[in-house]
Amino acid sequence: MSRVPSPPPPAEMSSGPVAESWCYTQIKVVKFSYMWTINNFSFCREEMGEVIKSSTFSSGANDKLKWCLRVNPKGLDEESKDYLSLYLLLVSCPKSEVRAKFKFSILNAKGEETKAMESQRAYRFVQGKDWGFKKFIRRDFLLDEANGLLPDDKLTLFCEVSVVQDSVNISGQNTMNMVKVPECRLADELGGLWENSRFTDCCLCVAGQEFQAHKAILAARSPVFSAMFEHEMEESKKNRVEINDVEPEVFKEMMCFIYTGKAPNLDKMADDLLAAADKYALERLKVMCEDALCSNLSVENAAEILILADLHSADQLKTQAVDFINYHASDVLETSGWKSMVVSHPHLVAEAYRSLASAQCPFLGPPRKRLKQS
Rank of each mutant, 00 (worst) to 15 (best):
N177H: 04
K110S: 10
H214P: 02
N169H: 05
Y87Q: 00
R198W: 13
L143F: 07
L190C: 05
V181D: 04
K66C: 12
V322H: 12
V224L: 14
N196K: 11
R198V: 15
K74D: 10
Y353R: 00
L266S: 12
C44P: 09
C23G: 09
F57W: 00
A146C: 07
F324V: 15
S313M: 13
Y353A: 13
S105Y: 13
V332R: 00
S167M: 03
L364D: 14
I137K: 03
S236R: 05
V246M: 04
H328D: 04
S119H: 02
N296F: 11
V18I: 03
L311E: 10
R370T: 04
Q320R: 06
L157K: 00
S92L: 14
R45V: 12
Y327C: 04
T335N: 04
E230R: 02
C68S: 05
K154H: 09
M48A: 07
R138F: 12
L84P: 01
S14C: 08
K154G: 15
Q120K: 12
H328Q: 01
K95E: 08
R124Y: 15
S54G: 02
C68L: 05
E112L: 11
S374L: 15
M48L: 06
L84G: 09
S80D: 06
S295Y: 15
G191V: 03
V206H: 12
K103R: 12
L76Q: 11
A207H: 15
V126C: 14
V168L: 02
K64G: 10
G111F: 14
G208L: 15
V91Y: 01
Q120F: 10
S6R: 01
D152R: 10
F199W: 15
P248G: 09
C205R: 11
N108A: 15
A321E: 01
L157H: 02
R185I: 04
L86C: 10
L204F: 15
E112G: 08
F324Y: 11
D201P: 00
N265F: 06
A61V: 06
M255T: 07
P7T: 06
C159V: 14
V29P: 14
T156W: 11
S14E: 15
C159Y: 06
S14Q: 05
L86F: 14
Y34I: 14
S6T: 11
E113V: 04
R284L: 06
V168M: 08
E112D: 03
E304N: 11
E46I: 04
C294I: 12
G16P: 07
W36Y: 08
S340L: 04
N196Q: 02
K53T: 09
Y87V: 00
K252E: 02
D144E: 05
D153L: 01
Q373T: 14
A219V: 11
S92Y: 02
R70V: 11
K28N: 13
E112W: 08
E47S: 01
V181M: 05
R354T: 01
L204D: 00
C68W: 02
K66Y: 10
N244Y: 05
S80P: 14
P94M: 11
E247K: 07
F158V: 09
G111R: 09
E113T: 06
R221K: 14
S374W: 09
N177L: 09
R354V: 10
L76E: 02
N147R: 09
M228W: 15
A303T: 08
H312S: 07
Q173E: 02
R139V: 11
R45M: 04
E247W: 09
L218C: 13
N196H: 02
S171A: 02
L88I: 05
T114S: 04
L371G: 13
M176T: 01
Y259I: 01
T175K: 03
I106Y: 13
E78P: 07
V224P: 08
A275P: 02
C184W: 02
N244D: 04
A321T: 08
L155D: 00
L193Y: 08
E112T: 09
F125L: 00
E118H: 13
K180T: 03
H214V: 10
T200P: 06
E300C: 08
L297A: 01
L107Y: 08
I52H: 04
K262H: 02
Q209M: 14
L65G: 13
L65E: 06
H312L: 04
E290D: 12
G111Q: 15
L150H: 02
V91P: 06
P367V: 14
K339M: 11
D291F: 13
V71H: 15
E249M: 01
S358D: 02
A357M: 01
K318P: 00
K154F: 15
I27H: 10
L348P: 00
K339W: 13
T37D: 10
K238A: 09
S197D: 15
V163M: 06
K262N: 07
G261E: 03
N296C: 13
I258L: 04
M1A: 00
G148H: 04
T335Q: 15
K53I: 01
M233D: 12
F125V: 00
F41M: 08
C184M: 05
K369D: 06
L150F: 07
K286E: 02
S2A: 10
C159W: 04
L142P: 09
E79N: 14
V164H: 02
F229I: 15
K115D: 09
S92Q: 04
K53R: 09
A350G: 01
G148M: 11
H347W: 06
L285I: 02
F363A: 15
S42N: 01
V51D: 07
L274I: 07
S58M: 14
Q127A: 07
K74W: 11
R368S: 15
V241L: 03
E234H: 14
V163N: 01
N39A: 06
K101W: 15
S80R: 04
E300Q: 01
N196V: 10
V71W: 12
L90W: 02
V224H: 13
K372Y: 08
S85P: 09
K103N: 12
A227S: 09
D201M: 05
S80N: 04
L107P: 12
M35K: 04
V179S: 07
R240G: 01
N147P: 10
F257Y: 05
W67L: 07
G192A: 08
F41L: 02
L293Q: 08
F211S: 12
M255W: 08
N108H: 15
M48F: 06
E304P: 10
P223E: 09
A292M: 04
L143R: 10
N62T: 11
S54R: 01
D310Y: 05
A213C: 12
G111I: 08
V206D: 15
M254S: 04
T37V: 05
M228D: 14
D63V: 02
I170K: 02
Q26S: 06
A350R: 12
S171T: 02
T37P: 01
M228Y: 14
E97H: 13
S236Q: 01
S55R: 04
N326G: 05
S336C: 04
G60P: 07
E78M: 13
K286V: 03
K95A: 11
K115L: 09
F104L: 12
S21M: 13
E195S: 03
P7K: 10
A11M: 11
L193H: 08
F251P: 00
S96V: 14
A187S: 04
L143Q: 12
P17C: 14
V224C: 14
R138N: 08
K339S: 10
A109F: 04
V343F: 01
W36L: 06
K252L: 05
L190T: 08
D331K: 11
L364C: 15
I307F: 02
C184F: 04
E334L: 06
V98M: 13
M48D: 03
G60C: 05
V126I: 08
Y123M: 07
E78C: 11
A329S: 08
A207W: 13
F158C: 06
F104A: 01
A187K: 11
S2L: 05
N174E: 08
A303D: 00
N39H: 06
K81N: 08
V349I: 11
L84C: 06
A359N: 04
P362A: 13
M269L: 05
G49F: 07
L364Y: 15
A61H: 05
